[in-house]
């Protein structure tokens, strides 16, 4: 239960005023409340200007045709035309949505499994633990652009090192990033390589927070290692998993830099290839806005993505909390 002190900061002036009942005189608002608002006002104003206002502005722009050049008051109003266009006629957007879902689903799933396995490994009495930690965590501190370029060179169909290694063990060369069938899989692999270290660190923190008493009690009850894992470790890691799934799904649905780096062969190319097989929503949005001058349509894409992320997050929260 919240303490009286907490209530000062969690109750708005309006709520306090309304809770005063039918008194003749308005209850004087505690000056502390105003002070609280005053001190958090820099952050509030910053959030308002740089987060809340742009969201509403973006929605407003999505109902207009705007090329970024025309003065804002002169933007023609087009209603839901931008939404109709992207949802019914824009094949690339639909493809990008599917690719984005596939990327987010497999990227987060594999990272969860591998991240947990890595954390269990580091949590055990393994030798050279710092070395393994470095191995897992090194990619996360590398810039996605650099990683994208590195993998592009390694996975080159004709001149890449990976195909040379595959050839040495008798496996035929693979087209990898130059194949519409394999390119998205390669991008997912790059994302796993880059972010698994983050999952390992968070899972490791969760594992080390589980009191040894639970394992001791399970052992007394005759639980073996597998049973301890299923009935002690996993249930107690659920809050950690909830955090990882929700935050990383949101991040994965907004993927841009990795795809851009891995699929642009030079300053001239616009990414998402070959033949849009790795096109993701944010990259398509960027191209629509800054290459085709269609800010209204790009804003509509942003709003659709916003709704998708919102709904997926609610479902994830419901699923993972409901089962608690």
């Amino acid at each position: 239960m919240a303490s009286p002190q907490d209530r000062v900061f969690t109750t708005s002036p309006a709520q306090l005023a309304s809770s005063a009942g039918p008194r003749k005189h308005r209850r004087r608002i505690d000056p502390k409340i105003w002070w609280a608002y005053a001190f958090i006002s820099p952050v509030l104003i910053f959030l308002l200007v740089f987060s809340v206002v742009p969201i509403f502005f973006s929605f407003w722009v999505s109902l207009h045709s705007w090329n970024l050049i025309t003065p804002i008051p002169e933007m023609p109003f087009v209603g839901v035309d931008n939404y109709t266009r992207i949802l019914l006629y824009d094949d690339v957007f639909r493809r990008a949505l599917v690719n984005t879902f596939v990327f987010a689903f497999w990227g987060v799933t594999f990272n969860l499994v591998l991240g947990l396995a890595g954390a269990l490994l580091l949590n055990s009495r393994i030798r050279w633990r710092p070395l393994w930690s470095t191995f897992f965590f090194l990619p996360i501190v590398t810039a996605p652009l650099a990683l994208g370029m590195m993998w592009t060179a390694l996975l080159n169909k004709n001149f890449g090192l990976v195909n040379a290694l595959l050839g040495s063990i008798g496996i035929p060369p693979q087209p990898f990033l130059s194949s519409p069938e394999q390119a998205l899989g390669c991008i997912i692999f790059m994302a796993i390589y880059q972010y698994v270290g983050y999952y390992v660190v968070v899972f490791l923190a969760g594992l080390q927070g589980i009191p040894q008493d639970y394992y001791d009690a399970a052992a007394v009850d005759g639980a073996n290692a597998r049973q301890s894992f299923w009935y002690v470790t996993l249930p107690l890691l659920r809050p950690v998993m909830l955090f990882l799934v929700v935050t990383n799904t949101i991040g994965a649905l907004q993927v841009f830099d990795l795809v851009f780096a891995a699929t642009t062969g030079g300053a001239e190319t616009s990414g998402g290839g070959p033949a849009n097989s790795t096109m993701v929503v944010v990259l398509h949005m960027y191209n629509t806005a800054f290459k085709f001058f269609r800010m209204g349509r790009a804003s509509a894409m942003a709003m659709v993505l916003f709704v998708v992320i919102f709904v997926i997050t609610l479902v994830q929260l419901w699923l993972l909390r409901h089962r608690e």
Binding site: P172, P173, G265, E268, T269, S270
Partner: peptide, 21 residues
């Protein structure tokens, strides 16, 4: 062509991913 079927040299270079190219 390489023995594995990939090309060591392309007879004609294409420039995918770049609209003007």
């Amino acid at each position: 062509a390489n023995p594995d079927g990939t090309l060591a040299r392309s007879g004609f270079v294409l420039m995918p991913g770049w609209d003007s190219g």
